[in-house]
Design a protein around this nucleic acid. Structure first.
Length: 547
RNA sequence: GCGCCCGUAGCUCAGCGGAUCAGAGUAUUGGCCUCCGAAGCCAAGGGUCGUGGGUUCGAAUCCCGCCGGGCGCGCCA
């Protein structure tokens, strides 16, 4: 396998710098890909940075760096570096070095883009974590799409990832659910004076009640009603998630934390830490010592704990299970819990780093239908469910769409657009490129495996070099997206790659007469297809051969 | 009022460890199928990057103020 150009250039630059400007000391060598292909394949601003440190003229220093002897040994990979603008150094790879990525993609196949971590970590991504009090809504869908893709991205970098779902099966909300189902089972409807205060009004409550009585359940047995309702809704949620292509490795129940004494254990440890105090009959934690704007109650006057206590217990458990990196995907409406949970973990002083766990907060999804916003209200029972969305627009479109924007930006999901104009969704654009290549390969009819050894020299077009450049960027895109928990970067990359391919496909014929050129172009197309498929897989989107 | 997040083309959004960062899609307008899939391609118009300062040789990007929007501010979860 040929040497990775980025590493080679970076090392050579460091060597040149040590020789020409030793007074600059050790510094990070930034190598970036210019957006404008006229500026070559890579550029670096080290000369500008080193000049700033040393007070030298940036352009002159850049020229000295370019004249260093180290470039001779890289002459078969890269053309002599050029100085541009105020002191940028531009690199242009030799054609063969640029095209070599095609062989790499075809050899690595489904693994292309993935990395082997130098220090593999045990990582947990916790997401969805919806309490079983109703069907999953659009916001849960965003979280499911984000969490699953983030997990896949981190896996792609060689880490062991656990997808985890945490839910409360015993709190006040669950009691409310049980009371609501019980009321329905007794024939009491919302509006009736006997209807429980704050009861869940959705139609699904009636359905659960019907099934409960149909199965011979006793409406007076509230505990049995609770169990039935929780099991019913959990089953429904799992069904929706399966239809969405999302599955979990571990489910953790809040009730288990109490049952196993983990909550009590954490409370005792926090009291022992000296970070708590009693006031007004309640037990408080000094979260202000960790940046909170006021201290928080741990144990209420009635003796029960506030929600963040089991949350801290849960996270201590995550740490003890050996997860050195934990990513929690949650809605922005939960952002105040971050400081509280971290404060609790720090107070315990068990060696957990201050920034652990990480949080990816996504803003709420606003659903617009008929030009009007559909209010999401669980109690009123009027909201768009994830199931609705999948039925309307299809799993691929919904997953791609929900993951194609930065998590923290507001999201307007126009139901009419998803319903009537699904072809506007960029997922089809990407899938279409995949299907096109598949179709060409099918017409060619020979064994695609031999393309991995095809001679690439016939690829002399600027467009072909540009495509190779895009392919070569894929591993970097994945590495960065994994580090930043930013699946949207993958969606944008795929859009661009598909666009570049469509453009090429329209301008040039792949199945040309000349055998050498034909096979070189097929190899390029096959490498594009492989990369598209790899990217789509990370987003949980299918890569169809026909559409 | 306080805290966190967000203001980039008509619309939906990338870019935000400063430079080679004024971009994509969509919409509008005009072209391209006797030829590997037109769910595609090519071209045009469209933005003082909310606003005012500051740092810098250089700011959409970093800092401060202001304006506008979202979320949170329970002994709820």
């Amino acid at each position: 396998m040929p040497r990775d150009p980025r590493t080679a250039l970076s090392e050579a630059l460091a060597e040149a710098l040590a020789m020409e400007a030793p007074e600059a000391g050790a510094m990070a060598i930034a190598l970036e890909r210019p957006k404008n292909a006229a500026h070559g394949d890579w550029f670096s601003n080290v000369a500008l940075q080193a000049a700033r440190r040393t007070g030298r003229n940036p352009r002159e220093l850049a020229q000295k760096l370019c004249a260093a002897p180290v470039w001779h040994s890289l002459a078969d990979m890269v053309e002599p570096p050029q100085v541009a603008g105020p002191g940028f150094i531009n690199f242009r790879l030799r054609a063969a070095a640029k095209l070599a990525v095609i062989h790499r993609v075809l050899e690595e196949g489904a693994r292309y883009g993935c990395a082997r971590a130098e220090r593999p970590e045990k990582v947990m991504v916790e997401f969805v974590s919806a309490n079983p009090t109703g069907p999953l809504h659009v916001g849960h869908g965003r979280q499911a799409a984000l969490g699953d893709s983030i997990a896949a991205l981190i896996e792609s970098q060689g880490h062991a990832v656990t997808r985890e779902f945490y839910y409360n099966d015993a709190g006040a909300q669950i009691r409310n659910l049980a009371l609501s189902v019980q009321a329905r089972a007794r024939g009491i409807a919302p509006g009736d004076p006997r209807w429980p205060a704050d009861g869940y009004r959705g139609e699904y409550i009636l359905e659960i009640a019907r099934e409960y009585t149909a199965s011979g359940g006793d409406p007076d047995d509230l505990e049995a009603v609770r169990k039935f309702a929780v099991a019913y809704l959990r089953r429904e949620q799992d069904e929706d998630l399966r239809a969405f292509g999302v599955s979990f490795d571990v489910y953790t129940l809040e009730s288990a934390l109490y049952a196993e004494g983990k909550v009590e254990e954490v409370v005792r440890a926090l009291v022992a830490s000296g970070k708590t105090y009693e006031k007004d009959g309640a037990l408080w934690l000094r979260t202000t010592d960790y940046g909170d704007d006021k201290d928080r109650v741990m144990r209420k006057a009635d003796g029960t704990y506030t929600y963040f206590v089991p949350d801290v217990a849960y996270h201590v458990g995550k740490w003890r299970r050996g997860f050195t990196r934990v990513v929690n995907v949650q809605g922005t409406d939960h952002h105040s819990t971050i400081v509280r949970v971290r404060a609790g973990l720090q107070a315990l002083a068990v060696g957990i780093p201050p920034g652990w766990p990480e949080y990816v907060l996504h803003s709420m999804v606003r659903v617009v239908r008929g030009g009007e916003e559909v209010k999401i209200s669980k109690r009123a029972g009027s909201y768009v469910t994830l199931r609705d969305l999948i039925e309307w627009a299809g799993r691929d479109a919904v997953r791609f769409f929900l993951v194609s924007r930065r998590p923290d930006t507001d999201f307007v999901f126009d139901v009419d657009l998803a319903l009537a104009r699904t072809e506007d969704n960029p997922v089809y654009y990407v899938q279409y490129a995949h299907a096109r290549v598949s179709s060409v390969l099918a017409q060619w009819g020979e064994d695609p495996a031999r393309l991995a050894r095809a001679a690439l020299a016939p690829l002399a077009l600027e467009r072909e070099a540009a495509l190779a450049r895009q392919l070569a960027a894929f591993p970097e895109v994945l590495a960065q997206a994994a580090a930043e928990c930013a699946p949207h970067a993958v969606a944008f990359y795929l859009r661009n790659l598909a666009g570049e391919f469509h453009s090429y496909y329209n301008a040039e014929r792949i199945l040309v007469e000349d055998r050498g050129l034909r096979e070189a172009r097929l190899a390029l197309a096959a490498a594009v297809r492989q990369t598209l498929a790899n990217g789509l897989r990370l987003l949980g989107v299918s890569a169809p051969e026909k559409m």
